[in-house]
Amino acid sequence: MPAQFHDVFCASADGLRLHAREIGPAASSALPVLCLPGLTRTTADFEVLAQVLAEDPNTPRRVVAIDYRGRGLSDHDPDPAKYAVPVEMGDVLAVATHLGIGKAIVIGTSRGGLISMVMAASQSPLLAAVVLNDIGPALEMTGLLKIKGYVGIRPTPTSWDDAANAIRTMFASDFPNLDEAGWLAWAGRAWRETDGRFEQTYDPALAQTLAGLDPDAPLPKLWEAFDAMKDLPMMLIHGALSDLLSRATVEKMAAHHPDLALVTVADQGHAPLLADAPTIARIAAFCARCDRAA
């Protein structure tokens, strides 16, 4: 029988209701995996990957994907200023504590990778290893401005086909090989339908986190936080078409972390979907190596 997902709810440090999805054996001897989504993303982004890792015939493992505040089934924060990496790191730690997870392999997509780096800089004992999905200590302004352009209140679709077409319009150049089923699946992660009405799966107030983004004032680089991971097993997944993480930054990351396991995903931009078999196989192999090292 396939492993089943279970919804988990707990309280944040400031009393918001946080949501996570868990799958796999809690008593496994393998290191658990914590999946941290991108800025506007949810636990749904990790369903395919989580199912495969949880059902690995050799080392089935516990996998937990987390909705930070304002995303998915977690409460929205009445104060948008709290949609910030340090606060969201606290949400991750609250869920891990609630589930009794003291050490884990953390897979961070985009925003989730930034949270991982800040966690390392704060010397959190939670990190056993890190997989960064198309994120690094230096980011390209082109990609940041693109994200700023689509985060917030968007036109409400009238059907799932309409929703899929809207997603395709925004991201077709980043994912040229995604088929109709893929765009519909993406729409299903970006919207939910309740009583015939479509609603985004994140708080539109998240747009305020990027309001101050200025092309003439680049964001500070996070090399010190990245270097705090120097003793951790690390994998970097890089979208070959990414406009957020440059090849030059990838090469510099590899120079800073000589044991970095690099996976370049062809024909995908920011951020790789982590749903294709070759990428999942590389992540599973990396997790198994981390088990042996632990």
Rank of each mutant, 00 (worst) to 15 (best):
G239L: 08
D243A: 11
L232P: 14
L210H: 00
D243H: 11
L210G: 06
A217T: 13
A205H: 11
D231F: 03
P215K: 12
S246T: 11
P215W: 09
M235C: 03
V250S: 14
S242W: 10
A228Y: 09
P204H: 02
A228N: 02
A240G: 09
L210K: 00
K221P: 00
A240T: 10
A217F: 03
A225I: 04
A240L: 11
D216F: 09
A248H: 14
S242P: 15
I237T: 06
Y202P: 13
F226D: 05
A207W: 08
P220V: 02
Q200H: 01
E251M: 15
A225C: 04
P218Q: 10
Q208G: 07
L219D: 12
P204I: 01
L232F: 10
A240D: 12
P215C: 06
D227Q: 07
L219H: 13
A211F: 10
H238N: 07
D214A: 05
A205S: 08
G212V: 01
L244T: 15
M234V: 02
G212H: 04
D231W: 02
L245C: 05
S246P: 13
T249P: 00
V250P: 14
L236P: 10
E224I: 00
Q208S: 09
P215E: 11
Q208D: 13
L241A: 09
S242A: 04
L222F: 05
Q200P: 00
A207Y: 10
L236V: 06
L206T: 01
L222K: 08
F226T: 02
L219T: 12
G239A: 08
T201M: 07
S246L: 04
D203W: 08
L210M: 12
M229V: 02
T249Q: 06
I237Y: 15
L244M: 14
M229S: 03
L232M: 04
P233G: 07
M235Y: 07
L210R: 00
A240R: 12
P220D: 09
L206V: 02
P233C: 06
I237A: 01
K230W: 03
L222V: 01
L236Y: 09
L213M: 04
L210Q: 00
D243P: 13
A225D: 05
K221A: 04
L210P: 01
A225M: 10
L232H: 15
E251P: 00
A225V: 02
P204V: 02
A205Y: 07
L206H: 14
A205G: 01
K230I: 08
L232W: 11
M229Q: 11
D231P: 13
E251V: 13
Y202M: 00
F226P: 06
A248Q: 15
P204N: 01
L206Q: 07
D243L: 10
T201H: 08
D203L: 05
P233W: 11
A248V: 14
D243E: 15
G239W: 09
Q208K: 11
